[in-house]
């Protein structure tokens, strides 16, 4: 169904990828990581392609990460931000999408505070749609960069089997958790959700996870503890009594850090609430890999953009080549022009 082989046309949810798709992205991200370390961190892989960054909800870090990733692949980016609702301006979401679509973009990276918007957008445009976070639904590239980070520390290719990863906190309102669960489990990890019942989805029948209410019960068995941001609104809605009680029961602090196995990682999708889900000591501890997650995000998003927008020939070339020697396949900005499959907007994206 896709002209890009088995890779899906859009990336709306992690489940679209399956284990193989996730592994392919991770391997490709490894190739692209090298690009970022060059003097001129840019390859022409997507030259001539344009990517619209449609951020209906504020998100500095994800937008910058996608923008950087697209530019390192030589794609053009158009940035669209609108904090207010489209309906309140009298323009429907569909109008907005069709307007941007009419500008001839090849991909739309969509962030919206409401679940499902990227899926809706994909029905109204011929461009490839990439979910950059939709409400409480999914944040697939976050999950991919989290897998990349975990796999890097695990050191066994893309395999996470046997790892025990706890996701702690506001699961019900977390798109990161919904994507991470699918991705981690796909790669063989065991996921434990740690939260009070008020912060868990109401019906998790069939979810491939274990659920516990007490972080300390599992802390000593974990390979990684993934902390979610707790928003202040959750207090107003009586989902937790106070930030202090939350920090006491679920926050990662120095004493809990001491009980985490020595190799155990602390992860956070950012932005962190120091003093709530994570203490300052933990945030600055070398075992906390939050900033590493951010830098890995660029390579992972380069890989995703390339899989969605790269020409079949370019992808074949990369697949055939060894990810350990990406330089030959990804010439730098000066030397290329002829060697790399580029860049025409022809592939019928």
């Amino acid at each position: 169904m896709s002209q890009h082989g088995e890779f899906p046309r859009h990336l709306l949810s992690v489940a679209d990828l399956g284990r193989e798709g996730i592994e392919e992205i991770l391997r490709l991200a490894e190739s692209f990581e090298e690009v970022s370390s060059r003097d001129i961190p840019r390859v022409p892989a997507l030259r001539g392609r344009s990517v619209a960054l449609m951020f209906f909800e504020d998100s500095t870090r994800t937008r910058l990460s996608f923008d950087t990733a697209a530019k390192r692949l030589s794609a053009e980016t158009l940035v669209f931000t609108a904090a207010s609702s489209s309906l309140s301006k009298g323009e429907s979401l569909r109008d907005t999408v069709q307007t941007v679509s009419a500008m001839g973009v090849d991909a739309m990276v969509v962030r919206h505070r409401c679940a499902g918007v990227p899926a809706q957008v994909s029905r109204w445009t011929d461009a490839a749609v990439l979910n950059a976070g939709d409400g409480w639904h999914e944040h697939p590239t976050q999950a991919l960069l989290d897998c990349f980070t975990l796999a890097r520390h695990r050191g066994n290719g893309t395999d996470l089997s046997g790892m025990r990863i706890a996701i702690v906190g506001d699961i019900v309102h977390s798109r990161v958790a919904r994507s991470d669960i699918v991705a981690f489990v796909s790669l063989g990890a065991k996921v434990i959700l740690v939260a009070p019942p008020t912060l868990l989805p109401s019906d998790m029948e069939g979810w491939p996870v274990e659920t516990v209410g007490d972080l300390d019960e599992v802390l000593g068995t974990l390979d990684a503890v993934y902390l979610l941001r707790l928003q202040r609104e959750r207090m107003a809605a009586n989902l937790v009594p106070s930030l202090r009680e939350y920090a006491h029961r679920f926050g990662m602090d120095a004493s809990r850090m001491a009980r985490l196995p020595a190799h155990g990682l602390v992860m956070h999708p950012g932005p962190m609430n120091r003093g709530v889900e994570i203490s300052s000591e933990v945030a600055d501890d070398p075992r906390c890999v939050a900033t590493e997650q951010v830098s890995n995000g660029i390579a992972v998003r380069m890989a995703v953009l390339f899989m969605l927008l790269g020409t079949p020939a370019a992808k074949e070339a990369l697949r055939a080549g060894s990810p350990r020697r990406p330089g030959s396949l990804l010439p730098d900005q000066e030397s290329l022009h002829s060697s790399v499959p580029g860049a025409k907007r022809s592939a019928g994206v």
């Binding site: 679940a115 499902g116 939709d134 409480w136 639904h137 019900v172 798109r175 109401s202 019906d203």
Partner: peptide, 14 residues
Amino acid sequence: EGGWSSRLGLAGIP
């Protein structure tokens, strides 16, 4: 509010 709202991340009406 149920299995589907939980999976889809949409606010549920119980």
